[in-house]
């Protein structure tokens, strides 16, 4: 028998969150944590959690599983279960809406702040902006982020200052656009990140790398941003082609 402890909180009924224990028969074949949650929900329909694709591409079901953040749908039970106990808690640091559902507003605000869209005002002759395979390779390890928030919610610097420190997820995306050869506003992007809080609160704790369910390395991307900021790339003049339009 597995003992599953789930973080419960219903703002309409509870003053404080509490842990609820369910006894679950150990399945004969290995199942994903999401499957276990779905079966528990059949027993207790009031358990709330986000989920959608069930294959690790939408990022909805990020949660803290036995102390470590991950996506419930691609986390096999055998890899996380400890002494027949499974603790399911919401992502740390973000306000809890209900049970395992957190308020992602602060996380999205930081993502918006870094302007996650291509900025290029130069005219396009042939209907698309060309990019060589070498330049496209530079985006590998950056574009695959599904914004599940596992990394940012495992980062202590983000816990203490989610409004000032941009966080690993958004910084990875910021670098995704900085590194994109089709984006012309590199200097402006870097300038927006040049204050002491946005990037420099990263102390290389590396929780982000160890929890990313897609195997990405935000720490490395942040290192690249820091290198560019320190070598003064944010102070370079706007490139000539910007002046054309």
């Amino acid at each position: 028998m597995i003992s599953v402890n789930i973080y419960r909180y219903n703002p309409e009924k509870d003053s404080f969150p509490y842990m609820q224990t369910f006894k679950f028969e150990k399945p004969k074949r290995d199942i994903m944590v999401l499957e276990l949650l779905n079966q528990l929900k059949e027993k207790d329909p009031t358990i709330s959690y986000r989920r959608s694709c069930r294959e690790g591409v939408c990022g909805s079901d990020g949660m803290n599983i036995n102390g470590k953040n991950g996506l419930a749908c691609i986390t096999p039970l055998s890899t996380v279960i400890k002494k027949n106990k499974l603790d399911l808690r919401p992502l740390p640091g973000l306000p809890v809406v209900r049970d395992l559902v957190v308020d992602m507003t602060e996380f999205y605000a930081q993502y918006e702040k870094i302007k996650p869209f291509l900025q290029n005002d130069t005219p396009v002759d042939i209907g698309e902006r060309l990019q060589s395979p070498e330049d496209r390779d530079k985006l590998d390890g950056l574009y695959e982020c599904i914004l599940c928030a596992c990394c940012s919610t495992s980062c202590p610097s983000f816990w203490w200052n989610p409004d000032k420190f941009v966080g690993p997820a958004a910084l990875l995306q910021a670098y995704r656009f900085i590194a994109d050869s089709r984006d012309t506003k590199t200097a402006e992007r870097l300038q927006d990140l040049s204050d002491p809080f946005s990037v420099y609160r990263c102390h290389g704790i590396m929780n982000c790398v160890s929890v990313c369910p897609k195997g990405l390395n935000p720490n490395e991307a942040i290192g690249e941003i820091k290198s560019m900021l320190l070598s003064g790339k944010n102070k370079q003049n706007i490139i000539a082609s910007d002046a054309v339009s």
Partner: peptide
């Protein structure tokens, strides 16, 4: 009930 009160945070 906890209507309009601050949301808890797991930390």
């Amino acid at each position: 009930t906890n209507h309009n009160k601050i949301r808890p945070v797991y930390i």
